[in-house]
């Protein structure tokens, strides 16, 4: 009897270790892994080439991914983190949990090119204010228009708790510089509300609570492609748009390093890049792909792009958040 139970246990252990050897654990955010997100297609496509199983662990947000691995530390079962962004890169690096990748990123089409040894970008977009063209006759054409037009009802997200909110903070800073505080004060005069996350604000906007809401230039494409609704438009920004780049990284402690490396390479492959436009409603980062759907050509083009250096952002983010707080609660 003891032998039998031992054999069973051993077999079970063996089976589980085999399963582990062939499983890639990807931590991502919920909407990426959802049935309408790019997750399922990417899973099928990668599994076809790797003879493995992709296991998406869906966290509540991109910040959620980072705090989950921070909590787990070295013991984390994550192989790849998919869905951090430009502004989380610095704090992610500081955890010392990430491994360098060896993906060739020379063909990456992000503004100013891409050269980061830890992160590989997988899609990109630009923060923009969305409006309903049937209701708003003279839409803003610049960030200044949004800030200064006291008749414009605005909803944006909180930079303390959300990614787009932080994006706006940096966008304002790069446009207004030292005058940012005054601009915030001016904006707060006609702000409807400042929400916790992207979806709170966006759904309030869809219910008609504001004239414009902070989102991405690509947001109207969703309404056109998925709903056949053409009235939502992204406002132009003559000062330039602020980019949002979503990135992936590999864990130092990845239980399955070889698969993780293979997946990092896969991110820039057409099989992955073709999915992001209509899966995540963002722009791909590579040129080697099928043409984008018609709807994307109607979106404002980011001819001018503003960026602040990542180190400066990491260093001064808290001060800028405080400046925003001061100005808006004045």
């Amino acid at each position: 009897m003891p032998f039998k139970s031992f054999a069973v246990t051993a077999a079970a252990l063996l089976a589980s270790s085999i399963a582990a050897a062939n499983t890639l654990n990807v931590y991502t955010y919920d909407s990426f892994a959802s049935e309408w997100g790019p997750g399922p297609k990417i899973k099928t496509r990668f599994e076809a080439q790797c003879d493995c199983e992709v296991n998406f662990v869906a966290l509540d947000s991109s910040v959620g991914i980072l705090s989950r691995v921070q909590l787990e530390g070295e013991a984390s079962e994550a192989d790849v983190l998919l869905g951090l962004d430009l502004n989380l890169m610095q704090s992610a690096k500081q955890t010392d949990l990430l491994a360098k990748h060896n993906v060739d990123t020379t063909d990456v089409q992000t503004p100013n090119g891409w050269s980061d040894e830890y992160f590989v970008p997988f899609d990109q977009g630009y923060f923009a204010f969305i409006y309903d063209s049937e209701k708003l006759e003279t839409p803003p054409t610049s960030l200044k228009d949004v800030v200064e037009n006291q008749d414009l009802k605005v909803i944006y997200q909180d930079p303390r708790t959300s990614t787009p909110g932080l994006g706006l903070l940096l966008w304002m800073k790069s446009v207004y510089g030292e005058q940012a505080a005054d601009a915030w004060a001016q904006l707060s005069e006609h702000t409807v509300t400042v929400t916790k996350g992207w979806y709170d604000g966006y759904s309030l906007f869809l219910k008609g609570e504001a004239d414009v809401v902070l989102s991405y230039t690509t947001s109207p494409a969703y309404h056109m492609v998925a709903e056949g609704e053409n009235k939502y438009k992204a406002a132009e920004a003559s000062e330039g748009f602020y980019p949002q780049i979503e990135v992936a990284a590999m864990m130092n402690s990845a239980p399955n390093k070889a698969l993780a490396e293979e997946f990092m390479q896969f991110i820039l492959a057409p099989e992955f890049q073709n999915v992001v436009a209509t899966g995540n409603w963002m722009y791909p980062v590579m040129n080697n792909i099928e043409p984008l759907p018609e709807a994307f050509s109607t979106l404002p083009e980011a001819t001018k792009v503003l960026t602040l250096p990542a180190e400066q952002v990491a260093k001064q983010r808290q001060a800028w958040v405080n400046e925003w707080l001061e100005a808006t609660t004045r």
Partner: peptide, 18 residues
């Protein structure tokens, strides 16, 4: 938390939870 931020009309209305 979410209620206070969404309906609070701006960061003037934030709780310790934020």
């Amino acid at each position: 938390f979410a209620v206070v931020l969404s309906l609070g009309g701006g960061p003037r209305s934030s709780t310790l939870e934020v």
